[in-house]
Amino acid sequence: MNITTPITREKARSLKAGDMVYITGVIYTARDAAHKRMLENLEKGIALPVDLTDQTIYFAGPAPAKPGEPIGSVGPTTSYRMDAYSPKTIELGLTCMIGKGARNEAVIDAMKKYGAVYIGAVGGAGALLSECVKKCDVVAYDDLGSEAIHRLEVENFPGIVIIDSRGNNLYATEPQKYKK
């Protein structure tokens, strides 16, 4: 299934765990350090560098681009480190997160309450995923290097809906089927 960003709450609610998706449009990278700074700044009254309404955050920190290429390898990082921040970013309007690995109850509750999805990209397939990125610009926190917020224009970025806005979770259901 092809989806284009931005993703409305309504569209996020229509996605189901197990859907294979190809994402086209603008997405933003942010890891631990960027999340921490965004939310700490917000507490101090400093606005977010990006309006999160209907946006997608890709938990990733790219490798440097070689000359002539838009970006270096860029696979997902482990998402649970963002569990402390995601309920807040979802409340602020975020509708889609791309990462790898489990999420906690608080994140899933926020996804259900506001309407958001969690999409898994193949962890470790950084070279392959970088081919989907057509343009990359740093939009905030340049001093964080790879952990800065990057604005990516992606085409047919492949992922699979792991947790949907009803709380269906492939990590909970699928391994059981193969456990012996």
Partner: peptide, 18 residues
């Protein structure tokens, strides 16, 4: 994963960004 490793080798870029 195999396709990714092939691509990394041929373009000589990191297999994984980490």
């Amino acid at each position: 994963l195999m396709e990714n490793a092939d691509l990394a080798k041929s373009k000589f870029k990191p297999i994984c960004q980490d």
